[in-house]
Design a protein around this nucleic acid. Structure first.
Lengths: 223, 223, 223, 223
DNA sequence: AATGAATGAGTATTCATTCAT
DNA sequence: CATGAATGAATACTCATTCAT
């Protein structure tokens, strides 16, 4: 497994001009990344497109990776912001409502800069996803699990961790794929309805499988 | 989006020796791809590891991509084989049985060369998935949809295409992620049970959402 | 051979603050040169370490070379100071005493900032040694030769210029190498004793080689 | 201190063409190194001058340093050859003869490609001299010391190791400097005579310094 | 067919130096 | 005077691909 290089910006720009330069670089990078993919994104090209010199780019980003990392960081911050708004609200609702809101949020989140989202999630040589992102996913997972624990009496699942895992994977994968390949508002709406129904049914409805085997499951088994 | 280059082997090897050469190249490529990732896989390195000259490699593979494509093709053929055995059997069962078998098959399929599977699915600069792969997925989707159509009376879904899409996405994503990150037989067993329950419930159980709006859905809306 | 660039400081600092700035830069440069070598000494790094801006550095030093040149100049001034103290004293002694004092001084001189001495003498891409240094060496050479001329009756060498050259080269090389590689007070002491003996013997003792051929030697033949 | 990088040729050329390529590269490198110095010697320039592609250069030399190392290696082999011829002969002679022959050899050795010798010895960022070179110097030192031990009765020195060190340093430094700065056959001849006289006198002649303190000197104290 | 030497455009990155503020 | 952001030519090195033998 390839080692992770330094991905922090070299120095934080203090002056206004520097800030503007960083901004212009990041924007150019995003555009080129989307248009030409990771391979086609060369630092010289980014600098040129940004209208600055390569030197300026390297003044703020010690290497190409750190530039992509910044893109990830920003995109992820947007995702997180969109989600963090909805999450507490969802946690206050009943199961059906929470599931529904969760899915709506997932859709909304995937509406944010979807081309960039695609490139970032599919084309970046994974040196391992950004730690912040993992932390965020973990956090959502923990929240959902805690919510399930709290509503345990209303639920009908053998393991709240497993349930949270399945729900998150299912929603994420379905929404992601729909966004990438069958993106129409129509489709998204229908998908949301069906997912809501499926997941709510799963959580509250059906007969639990015979052997829950809960004892064997460690606390972090699903994340 | 980058255009897809010629990925067919330059010539089909007729002689036994040639066949052996191709074999030895493909195996070396697979090993290097797994061990060093896509970036670390250079044609010269593959040739060296295979014990042949680069020239020979290019005799059979017009470019690096075609080599990776061959890897994909072979891996995919294995997946397909594993699935094609189960699919007709599943189609003959009732919904619960079919779903269960489907999921078991998915798990089994993901057991095949999982490191290669991971590299192929995560690290290859996506030029678009191999057409054969899309075709295969499409085929599975069609089969499942057809099965749902046939069992329509037993089901409780507004749109069989959408249902097939969701089922496939859900199973694939959950199993894939579990294989990559929480791979224990224990986990896989539990996951299978829960997925089966959720999907069966979804297909047969709960109250259908109010407005199916089926008329609007084109034939290929979900694939 | 690369041409020598302007190496004089851009302007002589008159104000106290400016003087302090120059000082702080030169010290930082020396430290970095010693610690990281010539390659590792970048003007930006020097400025940063000195706590001033690169601009300020270039205010006083028109280019990197001039900074190194200043380092050389200062180091050389120290060497000269140490030597100039001893030289007149030595010139007043008899041959054995003079040689002995000369060697003692050489050792003492090599004690001054030996790491800097090493870097300066071994690692600097030679554009030719600083002219001042050549002048100093020349001066020492002239002095020694004049001393030999004055003591000609006590000596037993065919050519005082050649003798001065050999003596200086021998002392310098032996002391330098010992400082760099076998630096112990013990070693230095022994070396001094032996060098003294050898050189004194050479100057005063042995039978002169057959054909002195002095006529052919121009005045500056050995420097 | 900077770490030493891999300096071995990447692969040994087996075919005649490859051998010729290596040769042409090495020759171009030598010429450029002499003409433009280490900094001015870029791999692209060398390749161009050699009439091959940079790729070819890197096929045989993994980095710039390894190319310089090869130059060192070759130059050093020449030096060694010239010296190894004379050394056994010298060892068979009496002290005066041995010293004389040694010095003649040193002069002859410094006649070999003197410009390259200069660049190699003065301009190369010293990562430490090539290990082979150190070994060679060590070997000469050992031989000389052994010779002194064998002739101990004829000698008049307190420490054979120290004597060998001084002799080698003195000869090397004097000849080297003369080659670089006062190179005339005339000068070299005179220098040789005088050095011979001085060293022979030193070894055989004068009164040994009072306290030899031999006990303190470890075997390798002077090398 | 097979070899492997040769190619060279392309890439990330550095660093001495300038100049607007 | 001082700052430090900006510059960009220059450099070492890679690797998919070709082609003479």
């Amino acid at each position: 497994m390839t080692a992770r290089r330094r991905v922090r910006p070299r120095k934080l720009p203090t002056q206004a001009r520097a800030k503007a330069t960083v901004e212009v670089i990041v924007e150019a990078a995003a555009r080129i990344l989307v248009r030409h993919g990771f391979e086609g994104m060369t630092t010289n090209r980014v600098a040129e497109k940004a209208g600055v010199s390569v030197g300026s780019l390297y003044q703020y980003f010690p290497n190409k990776e750190s530039l992509v990392a910044e893109l990830e960081r920003r995109h992820h911050a947007e995702l997180r912001a969109a989600f963090e708004e909805a999450l507490p609200q969802a946690m206050a609702l009943d199961v059906a409502g929470a599931v529904s809101l969760l899915i709506q949020s997932a859709v909304k989140v995937h509406t944010i800069n979807p081309e960039l989202h695609r490139v970032l999630s599919e084309e970046i040589p994974r040196i391992g996803p950004a730690p912040e992102f993992k932390a965020f996913e973990q956090e959502v997972y923990e929240n959902l699990k805690a919510y399930f624990e709290a509503r345990r009496s209303e639920l009908c699942v053998p393991d709240t961790g497993l349930a949270a895992f399945i729900v998150l994977r299912t929603v994420e994968a379905s929404v992601h794929d729909t966004m990438i390949h069958q993106t129409t508002p129509q489709n998204l709406g229908l998908l949301g309805q069906e997912l809501s129904r499926m997941i709510t049914l799963y959580l509250t409805g059906g007969p639990v499988s015979a052997k829950p085997a809960r004892a064997k499951l460690g606390k972090a088994a699903w994340h």
